[in-house]
Design a protein around this nucleic acid. Sequence first.
DNA 1: TTTGGCATGTAATCCGTTACATGATTAG
DNA 2: CTAATCATGTAACGGATTACATGCCAAA
Lengths: 182, 182
Amino acid sequence: MGNRTARTPMVLLGLLTIEPMTGYELRQSVEQTVGHFWRESYGQIYPALRALRDDGLVEVLEDAGGPRGRKVYAITEAGRDALHDWLAEPPVPSVPRNELLLKLFFGRHGPPGALRSMLRQARDRALAEIGALGEVRAQLERQEADAPDLSWWLLTVDLGERVAQARLAWARDALDALRRNA
Amino acid sequence: MGNRTARTPMVLLGLLTIEPMTGYELRQSVEQTVGHFWRESYGQIYPALRALRDDGLVEVLEDAGGPRGRKVYAITEAGRDALHDWLAEPPVPSVPRNELLLKLFFGRHGPPGALRSMLRQARDRALAEIGALGEVRAQLERQEADAPDLSWWLLTVDLGERVAQARLAWARDALDALRRNA
DNA sequence: TTTGGCATGTAATCCGTTACATGATTAG
DNA sequence: CTAATCATGTAACGGATTACATGCCAAA
């Protein structure tokens, strides 16, 4: 039984399909590519790489540098198979946990200004997200125009933008409603 | 420093502002009220209730029934204060983790049909969510028309609906694009 | 009488973050 | 020379789920 989900190793395998990388670079790469909808910490990455190597799903290309070496990992054929199999399974629905909504739900029991400030923060975050995703999209279309993954990547950007737009509209409408009531 | 976030006890305190309940009823209540954006398991609830009681934030009204008793919890004044303080703090931004997007991002490396079936599932889930939230809204407006929390509750429903609509439109457009390309 | 819902709790385990420990290399 | 960045790893801890253990009561 053990690992039911095992998503960390799959992100690593996925990123290693783009190019071989060190654990450190994988961390950066997670942030830069799937950062709006996924995150991994070193505490997850290094043990996962060890396990992947033990299972023959990745291999170490170089091993040089300092005392503990710099290890460049590459995905193996077995690794591609494992990734393929995982991609065939439907995503396991995640437990929703939205602290903002929780606080709004119980908002009557908090201080009067808190609602407004949380909505403002939500609005600003949504705006920032829209801006960031717009840049991502522009950069993809410029620099990755020939990347074979492009259409998949744009799909994820697209959902991100739509959801951020929905949040923005919601926060603005809610703030307007507050103003009219006050 | 121990508990930085401590959200489980806060959900429980929040729900106990509505009415006193047992641990079992709290579990149902989480599902029925904040279910679209929050979830708690017994493994969290019972220990949390114990800790809340030790801290004087809740008290036990009744203690009867079976061998281990039926305990009806009520929020105390100290509990209301703790909830109030927590509601004053801005929500801690959560790490995004969306497995569907992860799978789409690496979609090229999976089986050809997987993308389509995941999008269909996303579309169907969004539709179901919209339906469920519509019912929640209708029921709130009917049965809780005088509830002092109503406007806050509707705010959370509203965001849920908008985000679900965004997901629905995204999944439909993506499916259409797929069909045109095939 | 047996199934399902009410009810409480613990134990094992996992997933994941943060902090710690260590050191090489590079740019200013 | 020194600060930042590259780089690898472990340890402690906390948050959360799942499974387990137990038993009452009511309805079919």
